[in-house]
């Protein structure tokens, strides 16, 4: 395409914008030389070009990215700063002092427990002895009472007394020593009821005359028992009942509080095992 008077302006604009090739530039320059009237038009357009002003961005420091500014902390250091909320699990026996204290507490519990058990046993023995005394007194009184009643067979109250009472009357009358009555009775209460009956019957048979033996049959559970007899038997039985340590359903009463003996025994065993374990650890 050739430059002419119709399209010169576009060529001039492209020329000042530096958008022409070398050949086109030369063509424009040749056109201006050939047509001096258009030289002024080209120079006017060239005057519209802005000369770059010396404007600087002064705060370049704000734009720089230095290594120190962008340096990041190592992850290992960051991990030391992290905090994680965790449940604090406190072991009661974790510390040495707590172990020592718990050991002392266990010993004290054992001592008090032993003392407590000992006091219970002594109390039982005392009650047993007391029961013996009361039984002997009762037996004596019964004997006396029965002696009196045996002399008065027509009294209505005497009729309520069982044949066992008459048995005692018989024995007292034969032996004539109240102290001796206690001894067989004590032995009798520690024996099973069946043996008790047989002994009683045997005792009667051996010592009593035949006519009385007939009137005094051996004591059986089927026979009607009067209230005084039941009271006597129950009191004496409770008083002389021994504590069976082998019984699994053992229950200890402290005032109104009921303590399971097995549980207490389990606790004492655990404490003992713990102390033993601590001891072995210390030795290690």
């Amino acid at each position: 395409m050739k430059i002419n008077t119709n399209n010169y302006e576009e060529y001039f604009l492209l020329y000042i914008d530096n958008e022409l090739s070398g050949e086109q530039k030369a063509a424009v320059e040749l056109f201006v030389l050939e047509n001096p009237a258009y030289q002024k038009k080209l120079s006017l357009l060239q005057q519209t070009i802005l000369i770059p002003a010396s404007i600087e961005f002064e705060d370049k420091i704000l734009l720089y990215r230095l290594e120190e500014m962008e340096s990041s902390l190592p992850t290992s250091f960051k991990q030391t700063l992290y905090r994680k909320e965790t449940k604090v699990v406190t072991r009661f026996f974790g510390t040495y002092s707590m172990r020592t204290l718990s050991g002392i507490a266990a010993i004290l519990i054992l001592l008090f427990g032993y003392k407590f058990m000992h006091s219970i046993s002594t109390a039982q023995n005392n009650s047993e002895a007391l029961a013996n005394n009361t039984n002997s007194i009762k037996t004596k009184s019964n004997a006396g009472y029965l002696n009196k009643t045996s002399n008065k067979p027509n009294n209505s109250s005497i009729s309520t007394i069982s044949k066992a009472a008459s048995k005692i009357v018989y024995t007292t009358s034969i032996v004539d020593k109240p102290q001796t009555i206690i001894d067989p009775s004590e032995k009798k209460y520690n024996r099973p009821t069946q043996n008790e009956n047989t002994i009683a019957s045997a005792f009667v048979i051996t010592n009593a005359p035949e006519d009385i033996v007939k009137n005094v049959p051996p004591i059986t559970t089927a026979e009607p028992i009067t209230s005084s007899e039941v009271l006597l038997a129950s009191e004496s039985k409770e008083a002389f009942e021994n504590l069976n340590t082998e019984n699994p359903d053992r229950v200890i009463y402290i005032a109104n509080m009921e303590i399971d003996g097995d549980k207490l025994r389990g606790i004492t065993r655990r404490i003992g095992a713990f102390i033993k374990r601590n001891k072995t650890e210390k030795e290690k």
Partner: peptide
């Protein structure tokens, strides 16, 4: 790279600023 970026600051920040401030 970081170095290229800082070179851009050196070479082009004035021009960009001039262009914007003139506008």
């Amino acid at each position: 790279t970081d170095k290229d970026f800082n070179n851009c600051v050196d070479n082009y920040s004035d021009g960009v600023y001039r262009f914007i401030v003139k506008n």
